[in-house]
Design a protein around this nucleic acid. Structure first.
Lengths: 176, 176
DNA sequence: GTCTATAAAGCGATAGAC
DNA sequence: GTCTATCGCTTTATAGAC
């Protein structure tokens, strides 16, 4: 709910007044739950996102049968970003002045995603160099797809991007 | 100069006080040149970006020999984004609340880029469906590469992304 | 715990001297 | 044209009643 306000308007755009108005929770209560104020709220939202990706993306990629985990990733990503209607808050924070504030979380999000996908591809028989290249390409492509989809107000761009990346990775797994 | 402040901190993060401090031009003078204030400044910066891309990217793609124009695009893009040290202000604006304010400029930037690249690929003999797919993939990939490069503070991600996209498009032109 | 009222600071923008 | 001083408003954050 609050996360959606940040996703829609960015860190600066999501003012406390707007958050109280939309959640119908007063500032007093908001500061009761988040004594650290806005920064703590955003921090917990980022932690929640990281937890979701850990459970639904990173851990399956790290632990489950590689091909199945990769297949599962596409579904999870498509679901999470609502097929392109939602942007990636971590990516958005990486581009503005919040970058420094949440730098380590932002770095961890992208690094772990790329590393986990690379690992799964290696385990499924793809050679190391190709796995690294494909993993980086996938995470980069997803971010770009979300950005351009929102810029053009055309969510089909994200779907097509996801489809292209999936096809390429599936081919590498099949050919391994 | 001012553009760099916006690129670094985003629309909200680039406050007028900060702009006066860094440019050593007082607010009075700033408002003398930009009566419309901050919004006008950002608008002119976006217009300047659009002009640069029109001259160095779109028009060559639309007018020059297709293969040469595509080759030129990679150089122009790498130069403009300083090999990944600079982000795309248009992409950043697409993700925050400025999206609505500059919506048509943002849409125009991405649409014209994809369309121009698609056109050049078609003219160089690539079939229509493949050209559209490759053009979209390139612009999406560039945006994603810039985002992830900044998030991981690793500009080599952008270089590798550009290399991958270039290779794929060159192969399509060569095979056409 | 939840609220209203308000403080303190920073914001974009303006006035007016020079 | 450029500056300083300041306006009016919004921001984050707090105080204190209930």
């Amino acid at each position: 709910m609050v996360a959606e306000i940040f996703r829609e308007l960015g860190y600066e755009g999501a003012t406390m007044s707007l958050i109280t108005a939309r959640t119908r929770v007063s500032k007093g209560s908001l500061y009761h739950f988040f004594p650290g104020g806005k920064e703590e709220m955003a921090g917990e939202i980022l932690a929640h996102i990281d937890e979701w990706f850990a459970i639904n993306v990173y851990e399956p990629l790290e632990r489950e049968a590689a091909a199945a985990a990769v297949a599962r990733m596409w579904g999870a990503v498509d679901e999470y970003f609502r097929s392109g209607r939602r942007i990636c808050l971590v990516g958005a924070f990486a581009l503005d002045e919040t970058r420094d504030r949440f730098g380590s979380v932002i770095r961890g999000y992208f690094r772990r995603w790329i590393d986990a996908l690379e690992g799964a591809l290696v385990r499924s028989g793809v050679d190391a160099a190709t796995a690294r290249r494909l993993a980086e390409e996938a995470v980069v492509g997803i971010q770009g797809g979300l950005t351009v989809a929102r810029a053009l107000k055309d969510k089909t761009i994200f779907s097509r991007t996801l489809g292209r990346l999936r096809q390429r990775i599936d081919a590498a797994i099949a050919g391994a």
